[in-house]
Nucleic acid binder design. Structure first.
Length: 210
DNA sequence: CACCAGGCAAGTA
DNA sequence: TACTTGCATGGT
């Protein structure tokens, strides 16, 4: 049992408080956001999501039937718009083929098996799969992202070059398997990353973990 | 102007 | 397994 993992969580929570993630109006919106936010600032993602809302196509079936070129235009502000339109289509095709577009049906699937299925979709990697599992479906899976690696590697918990699975194991083997806890912890790490631990802008003198 | 943002896949060696 | 590159907008 590594106590540092728990200590860091308590310090972050004490400093920043609840983060209320994922910022979205629906479970479906979380899934779309998970793909749109790949290597992209959340600010740009909200512009893309707003476009989808204004066009009234932010439902599974509407997006499924939307031409990919039109979808690409709508998600343009999120960057990589051609690739993301394709990835959204890949995911929607999977979602309807195996779960008839039903979040309820998908949520009933065994978490480990569902994770494998998600990873088989072209365009869904480990972080996107785990974001969907945790933030959309409320499954106890810890999400690892660039901030998480940067922060925890600076605190010598693992190396920044360690694999996704290695980093994930550090968290999941040292915390209760609690979706609410995983949700809050990861959100707090992103908050810390945005405020203090951005790339090439270390402000560790003011870091609340010190 | 340079650099970064809640990644991933495909190609190479 | 471990690199490298393409994808692209918008903020600092």
């Amino acid at each position: 049992m590594n106590k540092k993992i728990g200590l860091i969580y308590r310090k972050l929570y004490q400093h920043f408080g609840q983060q209320h993630w994922w910022p979205a109006e629906s479970v479906f919106e979380v899934m779309v956001g998970a793909i749109l936010t790949q290597n992209t600032s959340w600010q740009n993602v909200t512009k893309a999501i707003d476009n989808l809302k204004r066009a009234k196509v932010l439902t599974a079936r509407k997006l499924l039937n939307l031409p990919q070129k039109r979808l690409a235009t709508l998600v343009n502000p999120a960057g990589y718009y051609n690739i993301k339109a394709k990835r959204l289509k890949n995911w929607l095709n999977f979602f309807f083929k195996f779960y008839q577009g039903s979040i309820k049906k998908m949520s009933r699937k065994n978490t480990a098996l569902l994770r494998q299925e998600l990873l088989s979709v072209n365009g869904i990697g480990p972080e996107t799969a785990d974001s969907i599992l945790l933030y959309a479906l409320n499954k106890p899976v810890f999400v690892i992202d660039a901030y998480t690696k940067r922060i925890l590697s600076r605190h010598n918990m693992f190396k920044e070059t360690d694999s996704y699975d290695t980093a994930q194991r550090i968290f999941m083997s040292n915390l209760d398997k609690d979706a609410k806890l995983f949700n809050e912890y990861h959100a707090l790490l992103v908050k810390l990353g945005k405020d203090y631990c951005r790339k090439n802008k270390p402000r560790c003198a003011m870091c609340p973990l010190k």
